[in-house]
Design a binder for these strands. Structure first.
Lengths: 230, 230
DNA sequence: AATCTCATTTTGTGATCACATTTTCAGAAA
DNA sequence: TTTCTGAAAATGTGATCACAAAATGAGATT
């Protein structure tokens, strides 16, 4: 049983072993380090994380709760496989959730926060120029997250991250087979709409950003990617 | 540390201790057995469930992943408190998620399934007549769940249930202070729309059902309920 | 060469225990 | 009466172990 390698992640002092395991595994899945269908073992990950089964098992259980992993009937733990239909569901769900979240964040965004969002958008382009796909992905998520979490009572962010996690594995495959990073996004448009406090325009820009970004893969392209994953 | 009492739940043969603990705790929270702000302990629940800390802790960790519980900084485990603003967020999120889910289920519903949904709707009225609030609540959830899960590739149901769970505690309080059960719902309207395969009408009926049901509480009413919970 | 059998190994599960932190609360001090 | 103090109790954490189920793989059989 080969255990996938885990990207490093700083461990803040005082963080419990369980929280660290959860954060590290979560990030690994989010950035596409695990292939769909990969199976992992508690003991294997415990060893990789230099800890013991108990906290790792708790982390894995949490990850299944948010759809990032799956405990099968035969007690095997696997990264869920993605079908073209499931992929399409995930994309349409992203659009529904994130337009909703963006719309409800508009009223809470200060000029200051909008400037921060602009800075994040610039950093995305930096990472793309540098060719660091994983960093660009993280920055792109930060762009979206910063908008949505401007709403202080927001409940939706964990749900959105759950969908991101479920898209992680296919994203990892896509990154491997794309030589040139796509630069197309609707971030400028979203920012302009934020400045105008135009909720409809913000929601539309976010929806278009998703649809034309990862959602832009047609069914054939997804099927091709998934074949590569088998 | 008084441990809240848990509604009984059948334990299928072969179900692991952890799965049983999770299912039982989840249902308890879903039907409002736990008050907002209540704190629970691992050992207390382990005793109530006649098992040991390990599987219970895993179940609690999962429940935090879906927003049903909260591990505080000081390591206390509590049922999240609800503010009027949070309540409003949850309702608007329910509407966004469930209209989306309903819309995407329409094409998959067979006549047969629609008849099953009608039967469930009848059973809701039975339970209301009988005065069994918890049973009516469960049946109402079954009504919604049956519609949404007609879509076989659906991803959204776990997210919807997460929102239901977060509404559970305030629902429990509401049930205690409402003598007569409200019978108003838009189920008939939704069923008619399903029969016509009218996606927009289905989405509208579901949205109205939520808005006029639990969502119908205005901020003042919610604040009053929450004061009762303190 | 393909399939079957069975012993070995691997793996998830759940109970237990030691430890450190937090909470509780009785008694002293102001 | 209120506040402070410190010892005892309660609690979350994580490592370990025994157990049962599942997976593995070598050797036998067809």
């Amino acid at each position: 049983m080969k255990t996938p390698s885990l990207p490093l992640l700083e461990r803040p002092e005082g963080m419990t072993t369980h929280d660290y395991a959860f954060a590290r595994l979560r990030q690994a899945i989010m950035v596409g380090s695990f292939r769909p269908g990969t199976s992992v073992t508690i003991r294997g990950l415990a060893e990789a994380l230099e800890s013991s089964p108990t906290p790792v098992r708790e982390a894995l259980r949490q990850l299944t709760s948010i759809g990032a992993l799956q405990f099968l009937e035969n007690r095997r733990i696997v990264v869920p496989r993605i079908t073209p239909a499931r992929f399409e569901e995930l994309i349409s769900l992203r659009i529904a959730l994130e337009s909703h979240a963006a719309r409800r964040a508009v009223a809470h965004l200060s000029e200051r926060q909008i400037e921060r969002i602009v800075a994040i958008d610039d950093s995305i382009e930096d990472e793309i120029r540098r060719g660091d796909q994983a960093a660009a992905l993280i920055a792109n998520q930060a762009f979206h997250r910063t908008i949505y979490t401007a709403n202080p009572d927001q409940i939706v962010m964990p749900l959105i991250e759950s969908v991101w996690l479920q898209l992680g594995p296919i994203l990892g495959i896509a990154m491997e087979h794309v030589t040139e990073l796509y630069v197309v996004d609707r971030h400028r448009e979203a920012i302009e709409a934020l400045r105008r406090r135009d909720e409809d325009a913000v929601a539309d820009a976010i929806a278009a950003d998703i649809r034309e970004g990862i959602g832009g893969f047609d069914q054939q392209a997804v099927a091709r990617l998934l074949k590569l994953a088998a």
